[in-house]
């Protein structure tokens, strides 16, 4: 029996247009069998959370190269809470300094953050493991 596919929203919040990383990750996740929705550019946290809920995703992955991580992650997390959608995993990547990663992980505003040079396979493996996709009780509403 085939398992339901993991659904991921790759989001590009803020005003920055550097979408190389977001697109490479989106394609790698798709090649790994996931259902990937790419938000497109210049999205607000509100737009991203709305799309995530509408698309019923399991994971939101935010790509940030503008230095705005310390405002965007807490905002998206807060919106997810407001919408009772905290079960959606919030992860991200980009040019994010180590000390910011520490703060965001500790505060729970991000579950995992991947920096430049991370093999896409590591991200695929992390998501699958975290969602327990290889063990059965994973299903979609």
């Amino acid at each position: 029996m085939s398992q339901p596919r993991i659904r991921v929203l790759v989001g590009k919040p803020g005003l920055d247009g550097h979408d190389r990383g977001a697109k490479v990750i989106a394609r790698a996740l798709r090649d790994a069998g996931m259902e990937v929705i790419y938000s497109g550019l210049h999205q607000t946290p509100e737009q991203i959370v709305e799309a995530a809920i509408q698309e019923d995703v399991d994971v939101i992955g935010l790509s940030i190269l503008s230095g705005a991580q310390m405002t965007i992650f807490p905002r998206v997390k807060a919106l997810l809470k407001e919408q009772n959608s905290e079960d959606i995993l919030l992860i991200g990547g980009g040019t994010i300094p180590d000390e910011d990663i520490e703060v965001l992980i500790q505060s729970g505003d991000a579950e995992a953050l991947f920096t430049p040079g991370t093999p896409t396979g590591d991200i695929v493996a992390w998501i699958k493991e975290r969602l327990g996709v290889d063990s059965p009780p994973y299903e979609h509403a």
Partner: peptide
């Protein structure tokens, strides 16, 4: 509002 968090960053 769209500039929030981005002013003077890059």
């Amino acid at each position: 509002p769209r500039a929030y968090g981005e002013v003077g960053r890059v």
